[in-house]
Design a protein around this nucleic acid. Structure first.
Length: 598
RNA sequence: GGUCCCGUAGCUCAACCGGAUAGAGCAACUGCCUUCUAAGCAGUCGGUUGCAGGUUCGAGUCCUGCCGGGAUCGCCA
């Protein structure tokens, strides 16, 4: 049992013995740092039942604890707040226990829950390359999956690739028309960018046609519908559905280019998937479910043959599930995909990492699956995250304000290169790295900075990305954390040279900072649990930052290897080791690497 | 218009289930490298938590109204 739970029990006992009353579960909070103590018990809620002043209650419980609990060294009362100071051995033992646990983590938590979770993220369209929004999605999804795994779930990472539809036909048509047979190889352009280029070409010519038609007196809506290019794209989609070999061949070729491009990006940014679903494989599957819903009377058919569900009693609308001509819409495909995944994985939970612009869509999807009585319906969760805005507002592909993922990644690595080279030169370390090591280091630092920036913010909130200044290398940023890790590693190396070993001597009297550090370290499992429970990797990011800050302050105010006593030296070394490991394993859960030297 | 989300320091973000004097970073300004890596440490400056009520021992947090911003309400995905 951990210290906090033991204390809470002790307080319950104290209340029973002192006031002859049973209380609801007591809960402690960390003491604010301007007061002495580690845990604080708030007595205000007890004043009514006990009919005493909060100070009196706090004082009485404090005295009881001090004489009855070996955990408690001292206490102080401020208004109704009882601040509890723990005895030395508590910290020493806590660090020893934590270090042992940490050594084995995350192997010691793996598969402890017997529950399978499917996490879907990324899920791009195949008509253009990944952008900044996808990066937030990918880092969030990958990190969430890793965090769930470390919490004991059996995690399966997947995505649904939207590889069919009018969007890809637009790129195909433009390529057919203007491409002159160029390929990623012949042009030297990454496949997804090449296909994206033709999507833009389509849009450009299409806009011209629309404009011309409008000048001839058509309304905008009419012109957009009547423009020859649009009609041709729609015709191409029909041919695709009909299985026209030529169209299919072009589609396969161009999709291959895009998917290869995506793979390259995924590899670069360090995310991965256990499986991939393609819309072209699943888009027809939902139809069986629609049929089933009709038979069960959950769905209904309109005169034109279209199929609908009425969710108005749940505050939602009527929603189309199948067009009058029998073709499927977006949500039809999602029904089918969910079903297929359940058949293949029998998961208890499935998490969709998708932007909050689709909040409504997922409400509807989940409501439908629930009405259909699907066993997995209650385990569905939409991890809805906010959009990434630019200083100019929302990213708009038509206005060319989209921040391309590959460009951004290359840019942050380049900035990392410049800064790191400079720093290494200043500290005479540059020559101690091989060119390969340097390139790896720049990548770790640049990517780390980018990932941390995107993952430190509460997923639910929309966030602002300023290309000029958003990626920090100082302060609340990954390089600060990475640097601290490298620094500790350096201390650990030197400790090895001078034969100093980490230990947990009970007679070492901890300084306030040491107490705080030990306390914060041992919070890691709780934070990990909270991150999983609340679907927020940001709580881990913030925790690691807080730990790093504390350590740096400790580092500046304490000698480690040249400490006053050998007990102090070995205990501080133990703190340092645990901090480095917590940073490394914690950052790993965010998908961020940390170097041993920088 | 209906529904949902958001509004905290000049900027970017925190604040556990309602707890103490609302915290960090950036920016600006001071100090600190003959001592374990200065991407660091210590400090100064910066707030009527959008506004007005309400609930209570206590409200950034819960409730109501208003103001401002965003998303969504397609036989698009």
């Amino acid at each position: 049992m951990n210290v906090q739970a033991q204390l809470e029990n002790a307080i319950s006992t104290a209340i029973r013995e002192l006031f002859d009353t049973e209380t609801a579960a007591v809960s402690l909070q960390p003491t604010r740092k301007e007061f002495k103590g580690t845990y604080t018990f708030v007595t205000f809620p007890l004043t009514k039942t006990l009919r005493r002043k909060p100070e009196e209650i706090a004082q009485a419980i404090g005295e009881w604890l001090q004489s009855n609990s070996p955990l408690v060294r001292a206490f102080n009362v401020v208004k109704g707040f009882l601040n509890i100071e723990l005895s030395n051995e508590v910290f020493v033992h806590a660090l020893a226990d934590y270090s042992r646990w940490l050594e084995a983590f995350p192997n010691n938590t793996r598969h402890s829950k017997q529950e399978k979770v499917v996490v879907e993220y990324s899920s791009p369209n195949t008509n253009k390359p990944l952008h900044l929004g996808h990066l937030r999605n990918n880092f969030l999804g990958y990190s969430m999956a890793t965090i769930l795994e470390a919490n004991g779930y059996d995690v399966h990472k997947t995505q649904i690739i939207n590889d069919r539809g009018i969007h890809i036909c637009k790129s195909m048509l433009a390529y057919q028309r203007f491409g002159k047979g160029e390929t990623p190889e012949s042009s030297g352009i990454k496949g997804d960018h090449l296909v994206g280029h033709y999507y833009v070409v389509f849009e450009r010519h299409y806009r011209e046609q629309v404009k011309a038609l409008m000048e001839q007196g058509m309304s905008k809506e009419e012109a957009e519908k009547e423009a020859p290019l649009m009609k041709e794209a729609q015709e191409m989609l029909r041919q695709w559905e009909a299985g026209n070999p030529e169209v299919r061949a072009l589609w396969e070729k161009m999709n291959r280019w895009v998917l290869d491009g995506f793979d390259e990006t995924y590899r670069k940014i360090g995310v991965s998937f256990d499986s991939v679903y393609y819309e072209s494989d699943t888009y027809l599957l939902g139809k069986d479910i629609v049929e089933e819903g009709l038979q069960k009377g959950i769905f209904f058919k309109k005169e034109d043959g279209s199929v609908w569900v009425d969710l108005s009693d749940e505050g939602l609308d009527q929603k189309l599930l199948l067009r009058g001509d029998g073709t499927s819409v977006y949500i039809t495909q999602d029904l089918g995909t969910a079903e297929k995944r359940y058949q293949e994985h029998h998961m208890q939970r499935m998490i969709y990492v998708v932007g909050n612009e689709q909040d409504y869509h997922f409400k509807v999807l989940f409501a439908i699956l629930k009405r259909l009585g699907r066993p997995y319906a209650d385990g569905l969760f939409h991890l809805s995250y906010g959009m990434v805005d630019l200083p100019s507002g929302k990213m708009k592909s038509r206005e060319g304000t989209v921040v391309d993922a590959d460009d951004l990644v290359a840019e942050v690595i380049d900035i990392a290169r410049q800064i790191t080279e400079e720093k290494l030169k200043n500290s005479d370390m540059l020559d101690s790295f091989t060119p390969d090591e340097l390139n790896k280091l720049y990548e770790i630092i640049g990517l780390g900075a980018l990932k941390y920036f995107l993952v430190r913010v509460d997923p639910k909130k929309r966030m602002l990305f300023n290309p000029q200044e958003s990626i920090d290398f100082e302060g609340d940023a990954a390089p600060f954390i990475q640097y601290t890790h490298a620094r500790i590693c350096s201390v650990l190396r030197k400790a090895g040279e001078s034969q100093i070993k980490a230990a947990f001597p009970e007679n070492h009297a901890l300084s306030e900072q040491e107490e705080q550090l030990v306390f914060t370290l041992t919070q890691f499992p709780e934070k990990l649990d909270e991150a999983a429970r609340t679907y927020a990797p940001s709580v881990l990011a913030q925790y690691i930052y807080e730990l790093t800050r504390l350590y740096n302050s400790f580092y500046a105010h304490h000698s480690i290897l040249k400490a006053e006593t050998s007990e102090a030296a070995s205990f501080r070394l133990a703190i340092s080791q645990a901090t480095a490991q917590t940073i490394r394993k914690g950052m790993q859960l965010l998908g961020i690497e940390v170097p041993e030297r920088m």
